[in-house]
Amino acid sequence: MSLRTPLSRAKGLGSAKDGVHHWWIERLTAVALVPLYIWFVWGLISHAGADYETVAAWIGSPVTAVLLVLLLAVTFHHAQLGMQVVYEDYIHTEWLKLTSIVLTKFIAYVLAAAGIFAVLRVAFGG
């Protein structure tokens, strides 16, 4: 016997309400990160040993700045969703699990904002 209502079964969302959405965004961000990181690592390699002016000019150039803003936003979104799954698997004390998830999300958004601000500051020379 199932205790779920027919409507709940039809929606198929389970207790977390957004399980499919979470799963899908984790994959969507993963797909985006593949080209972004190949591009970024290539950029880092080609600027190995470069002086401050050269590196700052690279980071602040329009294409690099735009791609780096994307890389930061997508990275922290992906990381925060991924860490949530890890906590859900290992932490079985409800308040501790919730606190870890919420704290991680807040820290991730602060880091993303700080990174994006730094890139824009280099780009606009503030």
Binding site: L68, A79, V122
Partner: peptide, 29 residues
């Protein structure tokens, strides 16, 4: 899973590096 968690911690270094570039030559050095 371990590399995912390690990269999450490591992303702090990426933000630090970018902030250092934004702060100027001394911070970058």
């Amino acid at each position: 899973r371990m590399t995912g968690v390690a990269l999450t911690l490591g992303s702090v270094l990426l933000v630090y590096w970018l902030a250092a570039i934004a702060s100027g030559p001394e911070a970058y050095a």
